[in-house]
């Protein structure tokens, strides 16, 4: 278990995401005051979900092949993805965002 500092909450506006170079890479998303952390690599292809299109219904769409995932649960919501994205706990401490990643190694 490793706890990563992401950035100051003020530096991640709603509708944006930030990728953490953990192993595996994780991305933290901000939607309307809520923060979510998911595995960054799309389960369908070689795409960074941090580059995806974040929608108001708390989903993210892969920038390459339009697979959609739920930001709350990581669930794969549409073709061509079948496999869910892993989710990770996020915390805000003194205005700073942290994510805890269970290393695969």
């Amino acid at each position: 278990m490793t706890k990563f500092h992401v950035c100051a909450a003020a530096d991640l506006p709603s509708g944006e995401a930030k990728r953490i170079e953990s192993e595996p890479a994780v991305s933290v998303f901000h939607v309307g005051g809520e923060y979510f952390a998911l595995a960054d690599l799309c389960t369908h292809g070689d795409a960074s979900m941090a580059d995806g299109y974040i929608e108001d219904d708390c989903t993210v769409e892969c920038p390459l092949h339009a697979a959609r995932f739920c930001l709350r649960t990581g669930k794969a919501l549409s073709q061509p993805a079948y496999i869910d994205l892993a989710t990770y706990p996020v915390s805000i401490e003194d205005g700073e965002i942290y994510v805890t990643v269970e290393s695969a190694a």
Partner: peptide
Amino acid sequence: NTKAFTCPYHGWAYQVDGALQSVPLE
């Protein structure tokens, strides 16, 4: 404005600089 250009046929996806980034079922 886009992050990538993805072919509608089989899904080959190119970066904005034209490099081939992703091929489905590679």
